[in-house]
Simulated assay, not measured.
Amino acid sequence: MAVRMGPMALAAALLLEVAVRCYRALLRRTVSRTGSRSPDDKRLGASMLAGITLILRSRYLLGLVVFMLLHTSADLFVL
């Protein structure tokens, strides 16, 4: 399987590298224009517990988390 997946893995790695370079270029452009990160860039808090409480308070975020957990667990059982 590793022999068959070799070219696909290489293509995926190259696409990931292109995406990271694009992200860094956009981040540099944004930082250079404003002198710092955007004013909307707010830090969540000091601990992981703050993130968990934010997820539990928001129905939207909780739905996203449940969807990701179901998707990941379904993927584990299919393979």
Rank of each mutant, 00 (worst) to 15 (best):
I52S: 10
P39F: 10
G35Y: 00
L49I: 08
I55K: 00
S38P: 03
L61R: 07
S38I: 05
L62H: 08
I52N: 11
Y60I: 13
K42S: 12
L44T: 12
M48I: 12
S36D: 05
D41H: 10
D40Y: 08
L54S: 06
M48W: 12
S32T: 07
R57A: 12
L62F: 06
R37L: 06
R59L: 08
D40T: 09
L49V: 14
R37K: 09
R43E: 13
R57I: 08
S32D: 11
A50R: 07
G45Q: 02
R37N: 07
T53D: 07
T53P: 04
S38G: 14
G35N: 00
D41I: 02
D40P: 03
R37I: 02
P39Q: 14
R43G: 06
T34V: 04
G51T: 02
K42N: 12
M48L: 12
L62E: 09
R43W: 10
R43M: 13
A50Y: 04
M48F: 14
T34P: 02
T34F: 06
L62P: 02
R43S: 10
T53H: 12
A50F: 05
S32L: 05
L61T: 11
L61I: 11
T53Y: 08
S38M: 11
R37P: 01
K42W: 04
S58Q: 08
V31T: 13
A50Q: 05
L61K: 12
L54W: 06
S58R: 13
S58C: 11
K42Q: 14
R43N: 10
Y60W: 13
S58L: 13
